[in-house]
Write a protein that binds this DNA or RNA. Structure first.
Ligand SMILES: [Mn+2]
Ligand SMILES: [Mn+2]
Ligand SMILES: [Zn+2]
Ligand SMILES: [Zn+2]
Lengths: 137, 137
DNA sequence: AAACCAATGCAATGGAAGTGCAATTATTAT
DNA sequence: ATAATAATTGCACTTCCATTGCATTGGTTT
């Protein structure tokens, strides 16, 4: 099992205390988080640092961005085999209208979508909205 | 064929000059528009009026909102049989990565999406990104 | 230790969405 | 037609999130 340091270094991200903490925070969360979620978790740190950390993670493809339609961008750690860097990450995202949380349905892939002649599909964003398992129980 | 006045009145929207102009603008556009697109088309009118007009149209279900992932909400006239008011409008939207425009693929419906046990799907947002017919030609 | 470069913190900016209230315009009642 | 009423429009202001410039700190390398 890889340590956090190893994960970061293997992607060419220099290891700092802050980066490790944020990585750990993301790893412990089972839902996608917003920047202000991270802010609330690390009140001592500056917003900008948190922002740039998550952007670095995104560039280096250890997190991916999720647009769930709430207007606030969310982030989640990439799982094994998440190819979001080459824009072919095709797993579903689910947004709960009740608890307002968004999660990756990592092993539910997006079906092939037919587009009209002349159109070229490169990427698909699919967000299912409804009630999550915790709220429907 | 219905006149614009008739369309508006039939949905309980009072007819004003501004509303007719905006409706016409939307009808002539074959792509989804942003609020600032409308702003640029009607520089004499106030932003707020344009904003509230489009919101009225949305409430009365003659336009629907599109979240194409650019972070800016877009709007398009509902076609015949567009049931976006009852949240079952399931046609595809296509966003061109080249010309940056977004269009409704009105007769391409979203396939049934499977979600895990315990999850209840109420609504789906699906945006295909790639190259549009005009840009790929 | 000096030089260097990357990471962090602070302050400010920009863009889009939304709201309170006053002024204007249209509709209805007298 | 005039007055009363209601809806629409315009202006100013606010909020929220995302993003950047620049100074400062801290770690690495020579
Ligand atoms: Mn995901
Ligand atoms: Mn549409
Ligand atoms: Zn929920
Ligand atoms: Zn195009």
């Amino acid at each position: 099992m890889e340590t956090i340091e190893q994960v970061l270094e293997s992607r060419g991200i220099r290891v700092t205390a802050m980066r490790m903490l944020i990585y750990k925070f993301l790893a412990e969360k089972e839902v996608a988080v917003t920047l202000s979620d991270i802010e609330n978790a690390f009140v001592k740190a500056d917003r900008t640092t948190l922002y740039r950390t998550i952007k670095t993670f995104e560039e280096k493809a250890i997190v991916h961005q999720i647009d769930d339609g709430t207007g606030i961008t969310k982030y989640a750690l990439c799982e094994q085999g998440c190819n979001c860097d080459i824009k072919t990450d095709l797993h579903l995202h689910f947004h709960c209208n009740n608890c307002n949380e968004t999660i990756c349905l990592t092993d539910h892939k997006i079906p092939q979508i037919k587009v009209p002649d002349g159109f070229v599909s490169e990427n698909v964003n699919l967000v299912v909205k409804g009630i999550c398992d915790k709220c429907s129980g």
